[in-house]
Amino acid sequence: MNFDLQLAGKRVVVTGGTRGVGAAVVERLSGLGARIAATARSLPKAPVDDVHYVAADLATAEGVRAAVEAARRHLGGIDILINVVGGSSAPAGGFARLDDAEWAKALDLNLMSAVRMDRALLPSMIAQGSGVILHVTSIQRVLPLHDATIAYASAKAALSTYSKALSKEVASKGVRVVRVSPGWVETEASVEFLAGIAANAGTDHEGARQLVMQALGGIPLGRPAKPGEVADLIAFLVSPRAGSITGAEYTIDGGTVPTT
């Protein structure tokens, strides 16, 4: 039996849609027939056919406005919003290295980008009586790494709490709000990160991989997740097949978090 996710023709906005998990989501949903507007700070080197890309910095209110306006013009309306954008560029060295500017950067990118996108697009979903919002959080909300990502982990924890609260408010209005919490995903950025670790530790790619897994307390599956695996989970959760799922958070981390 063909397990059709019923996403053909759905109007979808994907933030952070040019690299890593976001790019995998765009590719997967496009292959399933969705109409997609994808946003990121820069346009992709290898764009997916029929996907409308918008260059905008979603860490700013101005960037969100530009992205929303472009998506509305292209799609005419929104059925699904997938907030993938996020990350950390904070320096290593623990809490003392993070000044107010670093905290503001982490919160603007990992929390406020989603809040602003939701605030702009949710009213039209409520008006049409249907819609899905998905927030990509992180296992760092429950398993934070202290050296460089305290602000990132805190912002993702805030995003998860905000998402749960939002789901309670809008479920009765026909809008589902769900969360996906990835562990370590081997994206392009992750590979670059491993190269730096390998150079500093005097090891190779696989050695750096093992060092990161040790820092996480181990990954029982023995490897990080692949972007396409996260995209598959997201595709199901935003589809009509998951029509009774809202307010929930789904972890995809190879068993990294030792408790549920």
Rank of each mutant, 00 (worst) to 15 (best):
G63V: 04
L194F: 14
G196Y: 13
S113K: 00
R11W: 00
I133V: 11
H135V: 06
R72A: 10
S239Q: 07
S30Y: 11
G77K: 09
T18N: 02
V178C: 11
Q210G: 14
T246C: 06
N83T: 11
G33H: 09
I219L: 10
V177D: 01
Y162C: 12
P123T: 09
A153C: 13
E229F: 12
A101H: 13
E206L: 14
Q214W: 13
G129M: 03
A23E: 08
V54H: 02
D100C: 14
D253V: 04
A46K: 14
D147V: 10
P182Y: 00
L32A: 13
V257F: 00
H205N: 15
E249D: 14
L121S: 04
G33K: 02
K168I: 12
A127Q: 10
I219A: 11
E62F: 03
A23H: 08
G174C: 11
K105C: 08
P44I: 08
L107C: 09
T39C: 09
A61W: 06
I78Y: 01
F193N: 12
G129T: 10
L216V: 12
W103F: 13
G93A: 06
I126R: 11
G255L: 03
A242V: 04
A37M: 03
V212R: 13
L5T: 14
Q6G: 13
R241M: 11
A120C: 09
G222E: 06
R241E: 03
V238M: 05
V170C: 11
E169D: 15
R28D: 03
A55Y: 05
S130M: 05
I126D: 08
R65C: 12
V14M: 00
V238T: 07
I245V: 09
V170W: 07
G254W: 00
A199S: 15
I234W: 05
Y250S: 11
H135C: 11
V132M: 06
M125N: 04
P47L: 02
L237D: 03
V54N: 04
K168F: 14
A106G: 10
D204M: 10
G202W: 10
N83C: 10
P91N: 04
P258T: 14
P224K: 00
V13P: 04
I252K: 05
G94K: 01
G131M: 02
E229N: 13
K10E: 03
